[in-house]
Lab assay of single mutants.
Amino acid sequence: EEWMVEKALMVRTGLGARQIESYRQGAWIEGVHFKRVSPSGESTLRGTTWYNYPEINKFIR
């Protein structure tokens, strides 16, 4: 699984929702560690946020 939603990321990493938000707003790079995608497939600020687990795992190492 490369891309996953927040709940799956929480299960895989043990991070809480606030921790994920903090990383997203600070250290993680949009387009690398996470992306927002609307149902139409376009990038957007209001779409579902998807997280790239392999890239996040590399960051944590």
Rank of each mutant, 00 (worst) to 15 (best):
T49F: 15
A27C: 14
V11P: 03
W50F: 12
S22M: 15
G16T: 15
F59C: 05
P54E: 12
A27S: 10
S22F: 15
R46A: 15
Q19D: 10
T48K: 07
R36N: 15
A27H: 10
G26M: 10
G47W: 13
F59S: 04
I20V: 06
N52S: 05
V5Q: 15
L9P: 00
T44H: 12
G14K: 05
W50G: 01
G31W: 05
R46T: 14
N57H: 12
N57Y: 13
G26N: 14
E42Y: 06
L9R: 01
V5W: 06
E2G: 08
N57S: 13
W50V: 13
L15S: 01
A17W: 10
Y23H: 05
A27D: 09
T49L: 15
K35V: 11
Y51I: 01
I56L: 02
G16C: 14
E42N: 11
T49N: 06
M10Q: 07
M10L: 05
S22K: 13
M10S: 07
W50Y: 13
L15R: 00
M10G: 04
E21F: 06
T49I: 15
K35F: 06
T13M: 06
G47K: 08
G14Y: 03
P54S: 11
P54M: 09
F59M: 07
R18L: 12
Q25K: 13
I60L: 15
R12S: 06
W3I: 01
G14L: 04
T48G: 08
L15A: 01
S40C: 11
E6D: 05
R12Q: 08
K58F: 07
S43N: 11
I60F: 11
Q25S: 10
R61W: 10
L15N: 00
V32H: 05
G31Y: 05
T13F: 05
S22H: 14
R61A: 13
Y51G: 00
W50P: 00
K35E: 04
M4W: 03
E30G: 03
L9M: 04
G26F: 12
Y23P: 00
E1G: 10
E21Y: 08
E30T: 03
E55Q: 07
T44F: 09
T48D: 12
E42S: 10
K7E: 15
R12P: 02
V5I: 11
V37H: 07
T49E: 06
E6I: 14
G14H: 05
Y51A: 00
R46H: 14
R24W: 03
S38F: 14
Q25N: 14
E1N: 10
E1V: 08
F59P: 01
E2T: 10
S38M: 11
K35H: 04
L9Q: 00
T13L: 07
G47V: 13
L45A: 13
L45Q: 12
A27Q: 11
K58S: 08
R61Q: 15
G31A: 03
L15W: 06
A17H: 12
H33W: 02
T44N: 13
G41K: 08
G26K: 10
I60D: 03
Y53D: 02
N52Q: 02
E1F: 08
S43I: 09
Q19G: 03
E21H: 09
G31S: 04
I56M: 00
W28M: 02
I60S: 03
G26D: 11
G16Y: 06
F34M: 03
V5Y: 07
L15K: 01
R36W: 15
G16I: 09
I20H: 01
Q25P: 02
N52F: 06
R18F: 10
T49H: 10
S22V: 13
L45I: 12
E1K: 07
L45T: 13
W28H: 00
S40H: 11
H33A: 00
E6F: 08
S38T: 11
M4N: 01
G16F: 07
K58M: 06
N57P: 01
F59T: 05
E21I: 07
S38H: 12
I20W: 02
N52Y: 06
A17K: 14
E6G: 06
E21R: 11
V5H: 11
A8G: 06
L15G: 00
I20R: 01
R18Q: 14
E55N: 06
K35S: 07
Y23Q: 03
Q19W: 04
M4T: 03
W28P: 00
E2W: 09
Y23R: 02
N57W: 13
R61P: 04
V5G: 14
N57A: 15
N57M: 15
N52I: 02
E55K: 05
G26P: 01
W3T: 00
S22G: 09
G41I: 08
S40K: 10
R24I: 13
V11Y: 10
E55H: 04
E21P: 01
G14C: 06
A8I: 11
R24N: 03
E1R: 07
E21C: 08
E6R: 09
E30R: 04
E2A: 07
G41C: 07
G14W: 03
H33N: 00
T48W: 06
G47Y: 13
R61G: 10
V32F: 07
H33K: 00
E6H: 06
N52R: 02
A27F: 11
R46S: 15
N52W: 03
P39Y: 10
L9F: 05
G47R: 07
I20Y: 00
R46K: 13
I56Y: 01
K58P: 02
K35G: 03
R18N: 11
E55T: 05
V11E: 15
K35D: 04
I56D: 01
N52M: 02
I20M: 04
I56T: 01
R61S: 12
E21W: 09
E42P: 08
Q19H: 05
G16Q: 11
Q25V: 10
L45D: 15
M10R: 07
L9N: 01
G47D: 13
Y23N: 04
T13D: 01
E30Y: 08
Y51H: 01
R12I: 11
K7V: 09
R24V: 15
V37L: 09
E21N: 07
Y23I: 03
E30L: 06
R18H: 14
R46I: 14
F59A: 05
T13W: 02
K35C: 09
E21L: 08
R24F: 05
F34I: 03
I60P: 03
I56R: 00
E55C: 05
Y53V: 06
P39S: 12
P39N: 13
R24S: 08
A27N: 07
Q19L: 07
Q25G: 07
N57T: 14
V11A: 15
M4C: 06
V37Q: 08
K7C: 13
A27I: 12
I20G: 01
M4F: 05
G16D: 15
R24K: 10
G47E: 14
V5N: 15
W50A: 04
W50N: 03
Y53S: 02
I29P: 00
A17M: 09
H33S: 00
G14R: 05
Y53H: 04
G41A: 09
K58Y: 06
E42H: 08
L9I: 08
R12V: 10
H33C: 02
E1D: 12
F59E: 03
Y51E: 00
G31F: 05
V11Q: 14
R61N: 14
S40W: 09
V5L: 15
A8S: 08
R18A: 15
G16S: 15
S38E: 12
R36I: 15
R36A: 08
K58L: 08
S40F: 11
L9K: 01
T44A: 12
E55I: 05
E2R: 06
S43E: 12
L45M: 12
L9W: 02
L15T: 01
G26Q: 10
Q19Y: 04
I60W: 05
Y53R: 02
S38I: 13
Y53I: 05
G14D: 04
W3R: 01
Q25W: 06
Y51N: 00
M10F: 03
S40P: 14
P39R: 09
L45G: 14
T44G: 14
Q19I: 06
I60N: 03
E30C: 04
H33I: 01
E6Q: 08
S22C: 15
V11G: 08
H33F: 03
E1S: 10
L45E: 14
E1Q: 09
Y53A: 04
E42G: 11
I20C: 02
N57D: 15
I20D: 01
E2D: 11
V32P: 02
V11F: 11
R61I: 14
R12G: 04
S40N: 13
P39K: 09
I29H: 05
P54A: 11
Y23S: 03
L9T: 01
E55D: 03
M4R: 01
R36F: 15
Y51D: 00
K7R: 09
F59K: 03
H33V: 01
G31C: 05
W28Q: 00
M4Y: 04
Y23K: 02
H33Y: 02
M10I: 09
